[in-house]
Design a protein around this nucleic acid. Sequence first.
DNA 1: ACAATAGTGTCTTTCAGACACTATCCC
DNA 2: GGGATAGTGTCTGAAAGACACTATTGT
Lengths: 254, 254
Amino acid sequence: MTDQDPAYSPKHYRTPDGAPADIVIFTITSTEKPTTKKSLPLRRLEILLIQRKKWPFEGHWALPGGFSSPEESIYACALRELQEETGVESVHLEYFNEYSEPGRDPRGWMISHAFYALVKEDALAARRAADDAADVRLFSVEEALDMKLAFDHRQIIQDALIHIRRSMLTTTIAKEFLPAEFTLSELYQVIQTVVPDFEEKNFIRKVTSTQSRKGIVEAVQEVDGSPKMSNRYSQRSAQLYRFTDEEPTLSIYG
Amino acid sequence: MTDQDPAYSPKHYRTPDGAPADIVIFTITSTEKPTTKKSLPLRRLEILLIQRKKWPFEGHWALPGGFSSPEESIYACALRELQEETGVESVHLEYFNEYSEPGRDPRGWMISHAFYALVKEDALAARRAADDAADVRLFSVEEALDMKLAFDHRQIIQDALIHIRRSMLTTTIAKEFLPAEFTLSELYQVIQTVVPDFEEKNFIRKVTSTQSRKGIVEAVQEVDGSPKMSNRYSQRSAQLYRFTDEEPTLSIYG
DNA sequence: ACAATAGTGTCTTTCAGACACTATCCC
DNA sequence: GGGATAGTGTCTGAAAGACACTATTGT
């Protein structure tokens, strides 16, 4: 009932056997459509998994992660693991849940801390070439959820998906999957890749000319003030946009 | 780099000294205005704190909580602690963060798991009378944040506030502070108590007659089909509403 | 009559939704 | 010219924002 039992002493209680951090590393891969014309790529949401080499779950695919130590916070641990895995600095890394069901880890009492990270495809490409081993791979979300994964990692991935989908619609994390300057079609594609149900009919108009959304994106201009365009994906070139610093607050009541 | 080091064995690493759960228990207290007429009460957002009786932070006020055991999940632990503290079943209890900065607990390597709970005032009243000890008390949010609290509990409370405020505007947790049937003034008051900046000019109209909000609340009717009213807070009686099961999804893009 | 809450009327501006239409430009 | 993307025009109805106004009733 009180914070600590009066008889508390570290020796009297069993203590956890470890506090690992597991990371759901999301990336969006692009593949060109087999067409002669310029076109928007096919995008797919993928997750990085690692094949385990020993007990428990030897041979199974699992989320990357590792044990934290008393000299670092759990977040610092996750960041370290992520950098070791991807070689990327300054990625979006966000904590979303703990996993502590009794028996979830045959090695003992392990309380896992789950993060999700958003990484651009090219950031992973270099790393994966380095250790080209077949034991690190990207899987599409559907593939990953169909596999028999180690521990409760399937559940963790499902929960991570719920979080990334909500964040994609309520925050500006889409920018983590996009270059600094992007076209609105790219943005629309990224959102749809993460949230398949997403559909907005007059997307361009809503994003560009709705005052109540307070300009989450703004048109990029050339140094001479003319609009900066891109024709990477189309014959007709498209206006480039960038995210502003606005983080809109949403409300169901107004 | 891999999930677990090949040389891993539980004995080789230092393990955490405990995995406590701490709970920020929010309640809204009501006090009548000193007026002769019926009126809306003054509402205040308060937090339940406990005064510690021993090292560390003896005499300091702290969040209620306790150590988890390997036989229960962290959530189950928090639920158990909350029930011991408040005697309440079926309250809203939500996990929101972990706290693991090195040195945060002088007793050793303690990874704390923070929850927030939303409890109705009357649920706490009974319990607080039972152990009328001066070592369990409600403090207003402002008071609590002005005090020198144990551990990093001030930080935990600040983070909990951010979460409860966002949830208050983006989900229907307001119902946790309201009776099953309530007037729209009550709802408005509750929202404002948690989110002081909240202001919507045509609140009644927006909540009742905006289709895009898909009816998060609905008017309550008497058995004979006539509108069910309440005059608890006013001379003129007001329509009673209840929350529906709708949980609206919000988006910044549409 | 008045205090206190509970609404309604009305006007203007903005936004949403639909969808046909034009624009660009490389192949 | 056709294919692929990038927009615009235009109309309707719904919603937002402001704020003055009416309604109810215990004291």
